[in-house]
Amino acid sequence: MVIKIFKNFIKRMFSSIFKNNKQIKLGFYGPPNAGKSTLANRICKDFTGEELGSVSNVPHETRHVQFKEKVEIEFKGKKLVFKMVDTPGIATKIDYEEFLKYKIKKKDAKKRAKEATQGVIESIKWLDDMDVVVVVLDSTENPYNQVNITIIGNLVARKIPILIVANKIDKKKSNIKKIEAAFSEYDAIGISAKQGENLEEFYESIFKLSKKVK
């Protein structure tokens, strides 16, 4: 009897330690150039002092899934540990000639295009591993892009909690209302990852969403 009680006590203690140390896998998904890496970098920089990956104006800068383990985010006295997963932008077409406009050499543009196609496949494969996903959309662009709808549809099908982020609110052309109207069933918040605008609301939403993780 005593041994049984002792065993249960040890089991409970270990499971509670394990639960507290559990990382929430937070994925950043969206079309290319929406600001996924900029946002992931800002969070990582704010809480670990290190960035996650490089950012660029040239689309498909992130061509491999990049992640950072054990990023402890503290917000209003509460702490949560995340595995930050920054994914390559999902697209339905990739043309190396598009990269030539950014003064990239033909050989490098072709290499970039090839890596970008593999990156899209990689992003899709990682969908199954996510606990929570931030769908980063460029608020200056038309949100009714089929890629956005496909990503969100897949997350819903997998029952993964979603937060929609309307990024680039610092730009004149930004239109958060259009994103809210397009995805009215989901929480959407406007931020500027580059300027660090409205990140408080972002963290609040992430903490709220993390409660839904099973």
Partner: peptide
């Protein structure tokens, strides 16, 4: 298509770029 079929379509499309001559992908809308 179902959402999973759409992602499958995107994956297969990406796998074909660079392997099928002049193929740059697809445009898709529902």
């Amino acid at each position: 298509l179902e959402p999973e079929e759409e992602t499958r379509l995107i994956e297969d499309t990406m796998a074909m770029i660079g392997h099928v001559r002049n193929f740059k992908g697809i445009e898709l809308a529902v």
